[in-house]
Design a protein around this nucleic acid. Structure first.
Lengths: 115, 115
DNA sequence: CATAATGTTCGTACATTTGCGAATAATTAG
DNA sequence: CTAATTATTCGCAAATGTACGAACATTATG
């Protein structure tokens, strides 16, 4: 009944944000490309990916807004790179999230009831 | 021109799937709850989370479909746990994805042009 | 058996995401 | 200056995601 407005922690929002950026295979593929080639022009990626040019721009925007990549515009070309600091940060956040999902004692089946 | 139909790798799809499961703060919060308490009933979580019961069911379904949790139905109660094997696997996949985004040589600014 | 407790499913509403081609902007090349 | 190159933005359509309450199913309780 205590009608406390519950929201989520900063950390939970942050994880969700990074996860959202990775939540489409083409965006994972983009990061793979950038990770392997250091930097790529939009056109280089467009050649490798099975999507229209305009769609690629949209996905790049999502990754950029999430902070995982950065773009350097020098028209008519645009060069994209991984944003190393944030990329590292994302990796650490996920690492921490997944490590030791449980440190408590277990029943025989490895399960504990709660409350 | 070689109109090769490009899709994504299994790994890329897998990452995107797990990421998608984490792409909403309430689902991160659910995993936090399960990680800390080992197992929880639906009702326990409903008390902690600012969403309707039916909405919680939907989010639990997403996590279950992604393989990150498992549910044991014994009506009228349902007990959920983290799916340890898959959870671990997800952690490893993300670890691997984020580690060493770049092992190549760098220019002075830490950037290489490609192609 | 009737009622309560617990969750899921259904139906609906609304917002967001994804995708494409066309139009646009900005520079380079002829 | 004109045309070509490159990438973004716009407008649209289709699909998906999020959220809720109501209806339903299943078991426990009186």
């Amino acid at each position: 009944m205590s009608a406390e407005i519950k929201k989520f922690t900063e950390r939970q929002e942050e994880i969700a944000n990074f996860a959202n950026a990775l939540a489409h295979p083409v965006r994972v593929a983009i990061l793979d490309l950038l990770a392997s080639k250091a930097c790529c022009y939009h056109g280089d990626m467009a050649d490798e990916l099975p999507i229209a040019n305009s769609t690629l721009s949209q996905h790049l925007k999502v990754l950029k807004d999430a902070g995982l990549i950065q773009g350097e515009i020098s028209p008519p070309k645009t060069k994209y790179c991984i944003h190393r600091d944030n990329y590292k940060k994302a990796g650490e956040i996920f690492s921490f999230f997944f490590e030791n999902p449980l440190e408590t004692t277990f029943s025989e089946e490895g399960i504990i009831l709660c409350s």
